[in-house]
Structures are given as C-alpha cells and as structure tokens.
Design a protein around this nucleic acid. Structure first.
Lengths: 260, 260
DNA sequence: AACTGCGGTTCATATTATGAACTCATCGTA
DNA sequence: TACGATGAGTTCATAATATGAACCGCAGTT
C-alpha cells in the first residue's frame, strides 16, 4: 500500500501489520491463521509475535494461547491520547459545546478513510452517543469525515476510496461523484452535517480545525437524535460548532487572513 | 533488560523501546536526543522512526519536525482496550484466587450506591456464597463497595448517599461520617474488609482494580464464613486479593506512578 | 561569514532475520 | 484407545537484511 518502503525496516512493517490484524471484528488470532492473514511465514510471524509479546504489545490467552492486544498497547495509546496537544487544547471547548447544546461533542481526526474519535464530552441528555474515544467511523458517513475529506486535495481524496463506499442507511452517500459534490458544498459553507447517513435517527454537525499552517488537522462535532436537532435548532448548533472550531484553531496558531 | 531475547527480533525490540521513550513527562523528542536516550545509533533510530511514522505509530510536528506518538498508537490502544475487557482479563485471576483460598472470588463494579457482581468463581467449600452474577449489594456494607467508594472523589461519594445507610446487621456502618473514616482507612491501606456488616457470619476482603488511566473501575474480592476467614488467616487472603487485583490492573494498562 | 547542531543520506559490511522442514502437544473422532 | 489432523514451537543453513561510520546540507546563532 504505502509505497517506497524505507530500507531496513522490513521487520517493523511486518510487526505493525501483525498488530493491525487485531481489529474489533477479529480481536483474537491463532498463530497460523494470523501468519496466513498477514501473508507472513509462520516462523517469522512467531518470532515477531514473541518479540511483541515480550514488549507487552500483545498477550496470549493462558489457556488457548491465542494472541490478543496487550497492556503495552493500551499504555501507548493512552499516552498518545494524553500528549496530543490538539486534545489538550480542545478539551475546554468540547466541554462548553456539550454544556451549551446538551448533546455529545467530539473531536476527531482522519485515519485513512475513517475518522478516529480522539476526545468526547457527553451531553446532558440521557439518550445520546455512548463513550467512544478511540473508535473509528467511516469518513463518508460522518459530519467530521466530510469536513476532513473536504479540505483534502481532490486527488488525495479520490485515492482514499479505491473500494466502494459502504452503505449504512438508505441515506448514506455511496456514489463517489455525489460525495464530491457534497464535499464541495462543505468547503463552500465551512461546515458539514449528516442526517441519518450513518445511523437512523442520528444527526450531527462538524466544523474544521486549522493548524498554524492553515491545514485542516481535525474536526469538532455535535451529534444527537434528529428529534432534538431539527432544522430550526440545528443552525444554531452549527454556528456554535463553527465558533468552537475557530477558537481551537486560533489557539493552535491559525490566523484567518493568510499571511506569510 | 528482558532476558533471553528471542533471536531475530532486535529491530522490534529497538522500535518498541523507541516508542516507550514517549512518556507523559517527555512526549516529544528530536531525533538525535531520542537516539541517544534509547542508546541507538542515530541512523538506526532514524530508520526505525521512519518506519513507525509510515505506520502511523508516531507523527511529527510539521514545523519543528519533532516526533510524538501518532494516531496509529491511539487506534491500537483503543482496540486493545475494547478487546481486553474486564471479564476476559480477570477470569483467570478469579479462578486462581478461588482455587488458592477455597472461597468465592468475585469481580464487581459500582452502580450508584450499590455494587454489581460482574463475575464470580465459586470456592471449593460447600458452605459459601451462592452464584450471584448480575445481582447487586449495597456498597456501604460490602468490601468491594468500600473499595469502589473509597477511590471516588469525596464530593461524588457524598452525593450518592442522600438516603440513610440501610442497616443489615448490628455491625453495619450506618453513619456517613463513620463510613468516611472507614473509606479513608481503605484508601490508606489499599484494601477493604467487611466483618458481618452485610450478613452475620460473612467476612470478605476486596482490592481495587485500576485501569490504564489510574481510575478504579472495579474491585475483586474473596468472601466466606467468618469461621474460615479468621484474623490470622484473613491477612494472607487479603494479600492474595491485593496481588490478584494488581495483576489485573497491570493487564489493563495500569502503570504504577513511581515508574517511568 | 563562519560556526554549530540538527535532520537526513550513502554504502560497504556482516550481523541479523529468514523460512523450509521438522518435532511435539492437543484434541476431536472413529 | 488409537489415530489423524491441526496448530504451537524449534532448528539451522542461507543470504537478505539491518547496520552505523562518515557524510551532506540546511537553519538558526554568534
């Protein structure tokens, strides 16, 4: 996938692809299956996994000797989350957003053609999104995803979607051309919304966060049941999200009028 | 450090030690410093870091080109967290506890001012607690409850008890101030016990389970008839419970604050 | 302009990772 | 209970791989 492998890094790439084989859908692997799935020789996989096990990145079921991700991965992920300065900077804004709107506020970044929830503050309402930090959602069916895709160079965006856009509801945009139209609109208006495109009844709005270099590095969103986020009310929420995103961007060194 | 390095894994061990250099205290590294801190040749460090960067495990500040942990680490950690749920992780320890002591071992979480039994392994003895998974007991009269309350912020703990503490036996703590004293003691010693406070003749000891974020998310306990768990023997049981809780915590990514 | 410190690159070398073939343990089934 | 199948773990000759000393060139300092 990633071209131009820097020389001398074969085993790291292999080790990482082993780690990435542990998904939510398949969190446990036997050695032989794992090796086959990743396309490695069994011995090589065994050696790499043993190393990863010694480092605590994976662990094994005492009984079945099946591999699963280990505490080392949790520790590392926790550190990555905490030390992310975007995360630190945004926290207060998320809390304010969630407080003002009563809905759940999230901070998300893009990872390939998914978005990753980096931080979340629950809304006041009982009915709302569950705690989902570190989970991923498809970019094309989320408001944050649309924002993060919209500000990508068109070519780069197209490269991401080599496989068909997965349908989640009847409203999901599954046509790439149609998505591009939507993204153009998002760019034009500076925010994105989803209306039941990921899940029936779920509505959300997102706005981009710019870094000091005027690149979009993340998106904030507010999401909740469509019953509460109806058109009249939604526009107000959209504005709040935009303002919050703008404040975060400024704290990251973004200056609106482009200089340099 | 780790003895008997399995052959053919040098670069993985090195890559992992690079990743582990990113602590909360030092979340950002320049290449040269990092290489020196980890004890690697600069070129080697560069090569490994480039590989890790391509895999998304680390990322760099656009401006300073300093390394920090990347989204890949967050994703991985999230998966590890969701995969490693408490049940799976604790099961073996519960079994060992129950096996070693002959008494019933439980895993419990707090729900409002009750504790909920999430998992349980019966002891060998016939006379013991019945199978109680998914049942609730009052937190103020159980060892696990005391543990789970003890590590709560005091204000939050007080908010829970708007109604009087229910008396179950003549030993039940029903005075809130007295309970707070007991909880302080629990915090100080790192474990809790009950002596016939829930039921005459029933004695138990519990210890806290910490997650990767150093929050107490659950408690393990051993409980049985006071006739078998007398003072002399109880201390040994307490230690076993503490050790089991500690091992579970570690597997959940908890790192004792005096390391790093 | 010269200096310093840093990220990044080159390339000959042998250390290192590799994988085919093997053993051993376990488990389901006949 | 024996037997075959499956999967974890080991061995070892091989060369492909990672290695690191020395190098470049840029950016910020003095």
């Amino acid at each position: 996938m990633t071209k131009t492998p820097y020389p001398g890094t074969q085993s790291i790439r292999r080790a990482m692809s082993l780690l990435k084989a542990f998904t939510d859908a398949q969190p446990e692997w036997g050695l032989t299956d794992l090796a086959q799935a990743v396309g490695l020789n069994k011995t090589t996989a065994y050696r790499l996994m043993t190393a990863l096990e010694n480092e605590g990145m994976v662990a094994r079921d005492v009984h079945t000797s099946a591999y699963h991700l280990g505490p080392g991965a949790i520790v590392l992920g926790g550190r990555a989350l905490r030390t992310n300065d975007l995360h630190i900077t945004s926290r207060a804004e998320l809390e304010e957003l969630a407080g003002d709107t009563g809905e759940s506020a999230t901070l998300e970044i893009r990872v390939d053609c998914d978005v990753l929830i980096v931080d979340q503050v629950q809304g006041a309402h009982v009915l709302g999104a569950a705690q989902e930090i570190a989970t991923r959602w498809p970019a094309h069916a989320t408001s944050t995803g649309k924002v993060l895709l919209a500000y990508l160079p068109v070519t780069q965006c197209e490269e991401l979607f080599t496989v068909p856009l997965v349908r989640y509801t009847e409203k999901t945009i599954t046509d790439l051309a149609e998505l591009q139209v939507e993204l153009a609109q998002v760019r034009a208006q500076g925010y994105a919304t989803v209306h039941e495109e990921l899940e029936l009844g779920f509505v959300a709005a997102a706005a981009p966060i710019f870094n000091h270099n005027a690149e979009v590095i993340a998106a904030v969103s507010i999401g909740g049941p469509g019953a509460r986020l109806q058109a009249s009310h939604l526009q107000g929420v959209v504005n709040q999200v935009i303002q919050a995103a703008k404040r975060i961007s400024e704290r990251l060194g973004f200056v609106n009028s482009n200089s340099d």
